[in-house]
Design a protein around this nucleic acid. Structure first.
Lengths: 202, 202, 202, 202
DNA sequence: CATGAATGAGCTTTCATTCAT
DNA sequence: CATGAATGAAAGCTCATTCAT
């Protein structure tokens, strides 16, 4: 696991992870085999272990990398936009996103986190980060108006994540769904939720 | 796959499936092995193949059975309650539900549906059924008042399923979450969505 | 690891162990592979694990069985003969013994015991048993005369085992050695030791 | 296998062998891996093959070197002392010796010699040398008195080696053994053997 | 109906060895 | 001289599945 040129080493690691992602999307964490990953990354099985000590470690590294890239994207969005726009942008990206099959990957990741403490830890930390970003955006919205100031920002952030998670399953449940209409109604739902109609709550 | 008494045959099948569910919850679809399932169902591996032609078939039958039981529950609820009550009841069941770990099972199922056409088909049909039930309940609500009549009931049903799916991930993302508060805010969200606040939507 | 007929199960286990012994003699513990053992025992690699949970377990079982058979032989000898005859008989058996290569096996076993606590435990218990038997025989000899009564029987037993162990290496050190003469001199050595010449000891 | 400075080359070879010995003691011949040896010798795997063409060659060189150092020690001892003192000195060294675990190494070596002709050859030559030295010492003793002149010096030397070999196993068979007492009785045994007690031999 | 012995492909991982730099 | 990236065969082991009883 030592290396000469740390830069090249890290590059190769990323290359392998990219191959692994493709395999995980195609076959799932358990379904993907080391030899498939090696074929995808164009290296020999022996050499893979130069970069990762175990399949487990590949999954962990991949989870960390993938979730971090999501978090980074959120961070950028959160800087410039209001909560609704952040969520909307993310949902659209999720649907038309560069990496097809990302949804299944996240589902696998969450299912794995339900059984594997190491993955769980990574997911928890990621979740905290995302939730924090969203909550802050919401608080900004509450300060500048437009968002119901009575909402607990942290909890509302939880629900927004909830919605985004659910929408990853949406296409699996019905691949023929009209994405456009669906996004519109999601926007409606979020808007109504955050704007603070008190009609039926108490 | 021969059978003497079709009733006993079906009973045994269900018994095996119940054991399989426990294994799938504990270890996931790939992680659970036939021999584990046999141990759980107290049956020999040879005999198991009397009831199911393959592991694949067990997963499919289990998916069908499990989703059907969810649908049946929904059907009962939908008869008597309004949409909000249906969702709320279901969410609470999901959290405090008899079978702990059911969430992970559903996640696994959805992830599998993303790769396995046979499972996908089962999920699609189940989704259509649930969505139909919810949409009908929503339409009733629109007729009797209390629910925004401008909402497309089918699409709104999609979103409600969305919320329920997402809330399966919620506890995995953060096991320490305050379930009570979260349920309350979910109710708020749904109420605001369905009641039809027009604040920011147009 | 369960079974229908415990007798057949045990028979098969012994059969596998016999094959394993041949492999261990030929290739050593580490050098022998599961697939070699399977070939020797004429079973498939998967099936081997029906009878033993690991290669480690095979080595342990084999060690236990092998050492036990040595102990049983000693036990029989010790009943009827004096110490010198016991050792002499054993040495001759070791040389002309049915199982050729047994010496290398024992060496491997001892080397393994030096690193592997599980094997060490088995060896220790075996050693205690053998030493006890020899010591008793020696004490009988001391009582009936012919063996120096001043000798500590336990310690003397240790030395006799020492001699037998060493003689396992003898043939490896020089395969052309004159076994006959060597045995004679060993008998002389033992006789002189046990008879109790006080010439140079103090 | 090219070399610039033959002296430095040989020094590095020895350095590697020293590292290898430590690995072989710890893990056995098969258990020790090239990369472990490289780590121990602080050298890269590629570079190691500059000095040795194969792992096999390392074992052989190590065997030759190690046995030669034993022979050299014997040679020194044999110059100045009588046979009993030589053996006693060696036994004590073996027990309290600088390199702990050396016993296991020798056992491994002998077991390997039982299977590997190249190693066997080295061992045979070493054995001949040691035996010659001991036999000469014994003949000296027979000439100057104190050692039974009727003993075949070569054969007696074989038995003394026998004893030394066996005592390498002693501590493995029973780590709690009282080394001091054991050494004393070994001295007694050798003394009685060499002094020529005729009590029960004819 | 029911068992569990048996298979063999495939899994993750290790390791001696080679080679470009 | 020296590195460590790279290979590929083989290791121990698991598992879905079949079959004789």
């Amino acid at each position: 696991m030592r290396k000469g040129d740390p830069v090249k080493f890290e590059e190769k690691r990323q290359e392998i992870l990219e191959g692994a992602v493709r395999c995980f999307i195609r076959d799932g964490f358990r379904g993907a085999s080391i030899s498939t990953i090696c074929a995808e990354a164009q290296i020999s099985p022996g050499h893979l272990y130069h970069y990762f000590p175990s399949k487990e470690a590949i999954i962990e590294a991949m989870a960390a990398t993938h979730l971090e890239s999501i978090r980074a994207r959120f961070s950028q969005l959160a800087d410039k936009k209001d909560a609704i726009a952040v969520i909307t942008a993310e949902l659209q990206r999720s649907r038309k996103g560069a990496i097809s099959g990302e949804q299944a990957l996240i589902l696998d990741l969450m299912a794995e986190a339900g059984r594997n403490p190491a993955i769980a830890k990574i997911v928890h930390s990621h979740t905290r980060a995302i939730r924090g970003l969203l909550a802050e955006t919401l608080r900004n919205g509450q300060a500048t108006g437009g968002i119901d100031p009575n909402l607990d920002a942290e909890l509302a952030a939880v629900l927004l994540i909830n919605l985004m998670d659910g929408s990853k399953i949406l296409r699996i449940r019905d691949p023929k769904i009209d994405t456009r209409k669906c996004d519109e109604m999601l926007a409606t739902m979020i808007a109504r939720f955050l704007s603070g109609n008190v009609a039926q709550t108490d």
